[in-house]
């Protein structure tokens, strides 16, 4: 693998594995990491290293979390990913909101139609976790930021609610919390009035070592299997293998933002 990806392949991985090992926090992971350093390591074990990051270890730029959306498998009328996101992250589904235009939507199903050919496509749209995020560029306080592992987040401790990031986002991925949440938040997902929010790639799950997101789990459970989540820097991960095999596109690729979400079938 290292021959194919000299910049992002095994050496970095090996180093990460060694760090893990030296910390001697989790024997299994240490062993898996050492094994991963050897050639032709089983993908599962590699993923274990990335996912099973010890809790005292910071998110690493050796990892880049990403998502593959296969629009050809995405079910028309299926809303399972949206429901799962709302349940996991504690935002009220728009249908239940008293103020639908002001209700936050972290993920939404987008229905597309070519006016000429009548070809229809549908897909989930959410924060694209750009490598060059415009929301991070414009944020006056630095509250909007990209974590080392590529996840774009809002630090609600420094967000002043200016909404400049919402003006800057080409994907309409961000929402302002317009009203009091009255302690309805999930303990793992703080969110609050006057701050901007968006998809976090279920960062609480990622940090827990789940290695997946609520929407992906729901999509798999529904049998559509349209979503794959994983480390795009790891050549052996499922997402990397699929991205090598099938043609994918980035939405508004003309903006050259290097997105963390890639679409097939658009």
């Amino acid at each position: 693998m290292s021959e194919m990806n000299p910049n992002q392949g095994s050496p970095a991985r090996q180093q990460a594995a060694q760090t893990v090992e030296s910390l001697q926090r989790r024997r299994f992971i240490g062993a898996a990491g050492a094994a991963a350093g050897l050639a032709i390591a089983p993908g599962v074990m590699l993923i274990e290293v990335a996912h099973g990051r010890p809790e005292e270890q910071a998110a690493s730029s050796a990892v880049r979390w990403g998502m593959l959306v296969d629009a050809t498998k995405c079910g028309t009328g299926c809303n399972d990913c949206v429901t799962a996101c709302s349940t996991e992250n504690g935002w009220t589904p728009v249908a239940e909101s008293a103020h639908p235009k002001q209700a936050p939507q972290w993920i939404r199903k987008l229905e597309l139609q070519d006016p000429l050919t009548q070809m229809e496509t549908n897909l989930p749209m959410m924060c694209q976790h750009c490598a060059e995020p415009p929301c991070v560029d414009v944020c006056p306080t630095g509250a909007s930021f990209k974590r080392a592992d590529g996840i774009v987040l809002v630090n609600r401790h420094t967000c002043i609610g200016c909404r400049y990031c919402m003006m800057a986002c080409p994907y309409k991925a961000r929402s302002l919390v317009h009203e009091q949440l009255n302690d309805t938040q999930k303990p793992d997902v703080p969110r609050g009035i006057g701050c901007v929010e968006s998809c976090t790639f279920c960062v609480q799950k990622v940090d827990r070592g789940d290695g997946t997101t609520a929407c992906v789990e729901a999509c798999t459970a529904s049998g559509h299997n349209a979503l794959v989540f994983g480390d795009m820097n790891d050549p052996e991960s499922e997402i990397s293998r699929k991205l090598r095999e099938i043609p994918t596109k980035q939405v508004r690729a003309d903006l050259n933002l290097n997105l963390g979400v890639r679409y097939h079938g658009i």
Binding site: R53, E55, E56, Q57, A58, A59, F145, R147, A148, D149, L153, N155, R156, H157, P187, D188, V203, D207, R208
Partner: peptide, 18 residues
């Protein structure tokens, strides 16, 4: 701890608000 958690993703339990 909040800066460690939010920015770096370090979620040790000892000093967490949760």
């Amino acid at each position: 701890h909040r800066d460690k958690t939010v920015i770096e993703g370090i979620r040790t339990k000892k000093h967490s608000l949760k």
